[in-house]
């Protein structure tokens, strides 16, 4: 008899709990369905239509994708993102590892240095971009003035089609690297001492210890850097928007900037949605490949 009572009560408690669960999660799910689910579904509808918001939507089948395959600017944006990532990712890893290693030594004022390096991370991209617009300027920019004062030639940072995207990659590295310094530093501090001791007993020198112990232990952080940078590279917008408008010769046209232009400059909502879909597919594939590549690398 008592057993039955507790069972019954437990069951009632469970029911109440379940009800409460639904109630608590309901606002989130409602919001999710309206501002995530609906746009996601609508993206799949929109990309098969031509729509300028003003006139009624018109079904065009695969025409948007047909155009996309012939659109030089779509491929240009992909290429630009590729250029950005090939510079941004390695540069970020090298710089972040370098400073993380420095900060991992016994020293005074670690917190101070760490905080200073981290500052660009929290400041708005608009601020950073306007700042670099001046730093990168050809005639009047601070960097070129310094180069000239040291007897060098001014560098056409944003003016040259070959250098413009690398310049943006350098700027993005400067902005984000503080975060990865912190992540790498945390990673370094969590490597157990005994691993190094064991390696030392095996006769490994400092370089070998770093290569075989430190680097593999930092692998999760590497994956984070690579994946976050990739997503960041595909969502570049305000940097080219302010610095170059996508030029010169479309050398800094980014995925989001091209979507923005098609949607809000030429009013091609359907085509922009198709572009968004294809870029999303590319991101997905790239991240998948990177995960496989970077993670298996650890074990080889």
């Amino acid at each position: 008899m008592p057993e039955r009572v507790t069972k019954n009560r437990r069951w009632r408690v469970r029911l109440r709990e379940a009800q409460q669960g639904y109630v608590l999660v309901a606002p989130y799910l409602l919001h999710l369905s309206v501002f995530f689910g609906y746009p996601l579904l609508f993206a799949f509808v929109l990309m098969f239509h031509r729509w300028d918001i003003v006139t009624p939507m018109e079904f065009v089948g695969l025409k948007n994708f047909w155009r996309l395959m012939r659109d030089d600017l779509f491929f240009r944006a992909l290429l630009n993102t590729g250029i950005f990532l090939t510079i941004h990712i390695p540069l970020q890893i090298v710089v972040a590892l370098f400073f993380a290693e420095l900060l991992n030594r016994p020293l005074k004022g670690r917190g101070f240095f760490r905080a200073a390096y981290f500052m660009p991370v929290v400041v708005s991209g608009v601020v950073i971009t306007i700042l670099f617009q001046q730093l990168f300027a050809f005639d009047t920019g601070l960097i070129n003035r310094m180069l000239q004062a040291l007897g060098g030639e001014p560098v056409p940072w944003l003016v040259s089609p070959a250098l413009a995207m690398p310049s943006i990659a350098i700027m993005a590295t400067w902005k984000n690297v503080g975060l990865y310094i912190v992540l790498f530093l945390a990673g370094l501090q969590h490597i157990p001492r005994h691993l190094y001791e064991a390696a030392e007993l095996d006769g490994a020198n400092a370089w070998q210890r770093w290569w075989h112990v430190t680097l593999p232990m930092l692998n999760p952080t590497m994956v984070t850097v690579v994946v976050l940078s990739t997503i960041g590279g595909f969502s570049l917008f305000i940097e080219p928007y302010i610095l170059t408008g996508g030029g010169p010769l479309n050398a800094t046209l980014s995925a989001v900037l091209y979507i923005y232009n098609q949607a809000f400059y030429f009013n091609h909502m359907g085509y922009a949605a198709a572009l968004g879909f294809c870029f999303a597919i590319v991101i997905f594939l790239v991240v998948l490949l990177q995960r496989r590549f970077v993670e298996t690398d650890t074990w080889s």
Partner: peptide, 10 residues
């Protein structure tokens, strides 16, 4: 070529 592509698409 680009203009023709835009016209064909539209």
């Amino acid at each position: 070529r680009r203009i023709q592509m835009i016209l064909d698409w539209n």
